[in-house]
Every structure is written in structure tokens, then in C-alpha cells.
């Protein structure tokens, strides 16, 4: 029988997927207002005005759920000297020359970068979003601040979307990863291969 190791608890998985669903909805409803090519996406939300009404509330859900998620995963994402070594081998990682990679704990440096990217962009999105939130908050801010906020909001969203594209692709690319977030477990072989230090810690082997 194939043995598995628990990577995420049910609570962690639910929390992750609340963030993920909110991100997809906020992303689609936000892109709809970003470029005319995406305006058709407003139809998914019931038209332009509904898109505008719902987007900020979805954003707040994303923020709050991400705060909880970040609190859960914070301590696993501190950078270590080993991460610097790993980043030097990023080319090997991308070309599947895994035998040349240094040992990795629960997360590799790429995963940690994603974590911190989202830790920075989500609060920036919330703050800049509140400033331009019509009709509740925007009227209380001066127009020059609205101008600054729309640019920051777009930029932060863009960085986050790019980060999440990499995040999703990495999960598809590295076989055996998705089940960590869908079922909570990974195979021992997967853990041993990709996160050997974490594997030893978990199994004592």
C-alpha cells in the first residue's frame, strides 16, 4: 500500500479554498473593469453595476480569509540561508534537474516568495480598494488620493494575478501536489523528493 503524509488539515484546506474562490471572483470582476477586452466578464456577475457592487465585498472576504491563512502558514515561510542556495538552482528546478537541488523544508524559496508577495499585495489591495469604494468610502477621500489608489490597486492586482498564475501552474506542473490541497495528503515519495527536510521531520526517517 502506498503511504501518505498529512500536509494540510481540513481547516487549512477550507481556508485556502475560501481565499482561492474569493480571489477568482475578485480577479474576474476586477479585470472586467480594467480593460475593455475583459468587460464581458461583468456578465458573470449580473452586469456592470452588479460587478461594481460585488467586487469590493468579495475583496473583503478575500482579505479576511487570507489574514487567517497567512497566520496559519506564517511561521513556515521564514527565509533561511538554504533558500538562497535553492534560488541559485532555480534553473535546475525549472528544467526538472531535481537531483541538483538542495534539500527543502515544508516550502521551497519559490513558494515562500509567493507567500510574501500575497502578504504584501492583499493588504495593499484592501487599503487602495477602500479608497475607491463607491459609494461608501470614496466620497470621503480627495480626488488626488483616488488617482493614486486606482493605479496602486491595478498594479497590486496585477502582481498578485501573476503570482497566482505561477502558483497554480506550479501545482499542475509538480505532479502529486494538488491532492495536498484537495485531500490533505501527499505521497511519501512526493514529500521525500520535493521536501526532504520536511519529510524527515514528519516521519523521523
Amino acid at each position: 500500500m502506498r503511504t501518505t503524509i498529512q500536509r494540510y488539515t481540513a481547516r487549512e484546506r477550507s481556508n485556502h479554498w475560501v481565499v482561492a474562490i474569493a480571489f477568482i471572483l475578485a480577479g474576474l470582476s476586477g479585470l472586467a473593469l480594467f480593460h475593455p477586452a475583459f468587460f464581458f466578464l461583468t456578465n458573470l456577475f449580473g452586469g456592470g453595476p452588479w460587478d461594481r457592487i460585488l467586487h469590493p465585498f468579495i475583496g473583503v472576504v478575500m482579505f479576511l480569509s487570507f489574514v487567517a491563512l497567512a497566520a496559519r502558514f506564517w511561521r513556515f515561510n521564514h527565509f533561511t540561508p538554504a533558500d538562497r542556495q535553492w534560488m541559485k538552482h532555480i534553473g535546475d528546478e525549472l528544467c526538472n534537474r531535481d537531483e541538483r537541488l538542495p534539500e527543502v523544508g515544508k516550502y521551497n524559496a519559490g513558494q515562500k516568495y509567493l507567500f510574501w508577495t500575497v502578504v504584501v499585495t492583499v493588504p495593499v489591495l484592501l487599503l487602495s480598494g477602500v479608497v475607491i469604494w463607491q459609494p461608501w468610502f470614496a466620497p470621503y477621500f480627495p480626488i488626488w488620493l483616488l488617482r493614486v489608489a486606482v493605479v496602486i490597486h491595478a498594479l497590486a492586482a496585477w502582481i498578485m494575478i501573476l503570482g497566482i498564475i505561477v502558483h497554480v501552474y506550479a501545482a499542475i506542473w509538480v505532479k502529486g501536489t494538488v491532492r495536498a490541497m484537495t485531500r490533505g495528503t501527499v505521497s511519501e515519495a512526493w514529500a521525500k523528493h520535493h521536501h526532504r527536510a520536511w519529510y524527515r521531520e514528519m516521519t523521523g526517517k
Binding site: R2, F34, H35, A37, F38, L94, C95, N96, D98, A154, W158, I161, L162, I165, V166, Y169, I172, W173, V174, K175, G176, S187, A189, W190, H193, H194
Partner: peptide, 27 residues
Amino acid sequence: MSLGIGLAVFAGFFHFVTVGPKEVEEE
């Protein structure tokens, strides 16, 4: 930025069909 998002998706797709997935032999 819209182009950047599109390119990121394509980069992933072409990485997958050229380099291929990272698989671990199940022992």
C-alpha cells in the same frame, strides 16, 4: 499588464509541453 497576464499563462503552457511535468516515481 493585460499582455503580461496572457504571456504568463502561455509561458506556463509552453513550459509544460516542452520541459514537461515533474513526476516522482512512486516507490
